[in-house]
Write a protein that binds this DNA or RNA. Structure first.
Lengths: 226, 226
DNA sequence: GTTCAAATGTTGTAATTCCAACAGACACGT
DNA sequence: ACGTGTCTGTTGGAATTACAACATTTGAAC
């Protein structure tokens, strides 16, 4: 597979960098394209990772097996998304998840050391790429922190309100749409779906919010929620 | 306050960089020292952050107010620790926590753009520093992911076992010490302390583990915990 | 419109957790 | 030895949640 022939996906990693510059750098980094078939393992728990993986096409699943061998899907990644940044940056950390191809998937491996270290001709684009990489990891960080803030609330009602007021804040409006369906939201907040549905309709009955499908409106200010 | 007069703390950000090189770079970045008194606000919720803060001496508290105005301490930071990396890397993110001085505290502000962007004479040490910064953010990331894996287990027993087997794995032994006392562990796992104590002693009665204070021993393999 | 599958809402019961209150163990200073 | 405070373990009742089973709504296909 020839690097030049590959269609580059939109990716936050390449934000602000032209397609031709991306290609030039990837060639400089000796990026390695690879194709996986459905159910192939891309990474396995316990492996050490030194490359960032960029999805060119297809779909990967980030999975984890719990102590009883039940496989759980943590995340689904598609074209333009990356995997392994955080692990690749740390030599002493091994994967505690596995990555499996959900369908035929084309990926690109970029060695983190090529990416992070000065090459002979350090260029502005290279610095931009490092900037982007750090930004991607930082964003994950903030999203994880946000999630923990919601999850650590002590009951379903508070988890929901924490999440919804946060979404309203991000959107800058008391009316907003959420990106999850009920089951996904329940998984995200680590609660039971049906119990969450019940709590949502209770909140609506009490006049605290209104919703229909993924469209929500908060009716009271945060301070008034006593 | 003169930069040259300041004693530099040990910090993962400066790992592998000599004290004199650190000073040279900080001067190049125009790092700004500042002193806060007890209860002074260092950052407030909603502010935009463009600098990394490095603690030289003293202690800061990362706090959050919930919807009812209850202040909660999320983290306590001391000499050598940093704050704001993730926020500083992202221009469009504002703080959702506040930072308050717990005592008289000396800090250093380093502009993220000075740190991440090429200066006229890009040097190897500068690249090392960027490398370290990215590694720090990546490590936070992995720690947060780990925590979420524990918290999202559905009951106290599974949270405990998830955490303890993880610790055993990190330590490479079924016998290990943990860094938390009971209250801290309960906060970390987002459960009630007394309920957690009860569950721990139940696990001990059932012969699944042994403990005394912060010293734990797992007695069965993960696969056998049915 | 009808049909069907998937998503969402509702309800009751069993299980779990929270909370408060208290008891024992331990370290510290006097 | 004696208090004192902190940490940890124990217990019972109130509150909350998980789970299963079923009802209703929605949207897409025909």
């Amino acid at each position: 597979m020839n690097l030049a022939a590959i269609q580059m996906p939109l990716s936050p990693l390449f934000s602000g960098i032209t397609d031709s510059e991306v290609r030039r750098m990837l060639a400089c980094f000796r990026a390695a394209p690879k194709t996986y078939n459905r159910n192939d393992f891309v990474f396995r728990v316990g492996e050490s990772v030194n490359e960032i993986l960029i999805i060119l096409s297809g779909k990967l699943l980030v999975t984890q097996e719990d102590m009883w061998g039940n496989r759980r899907i943590l995340e689904s990644l598609t074209a333009g998304q990356t995997f392994g940044e955080s692990y690749a940056c740390l030599n002493d950390e091994v994967l505690n998840v596995s990555v499996i191809a959900a369908e035929k998937t084309q990926v690109l491996f970029v060695d983190i050391n090529h990416l992070l270290e000065v090459c002979a001709n350090t260029c502005e684009t290279h610095m931009r790429l490092i900037h982007n990489l750090t930004g991607c990891i930082a964003r994950q960080n903030i999203n994880l922190t946000r999630k923990i803030n919601h999850i650590t609330k002590k009951n379903t009602r508070e988890k929901l309100l924490s999440f919804l007021t946060d979404e309203a804040g991000k959107c800058g409006s008391a009316t907003f749409d959420i990106a999850f369906n009920r089951q996904q939201l329940a998984d995200y907040l680590a609660v039971d779906r049906s119990a969450m549905s019940a709590e949502l309709s209770k909140l609506q009955k009490e006049g605290i919010l209104t919703y229909s499908q993924n469209h929500f409106t908060l009716l009271v200010q945060a301070e008034d929620m006593v």
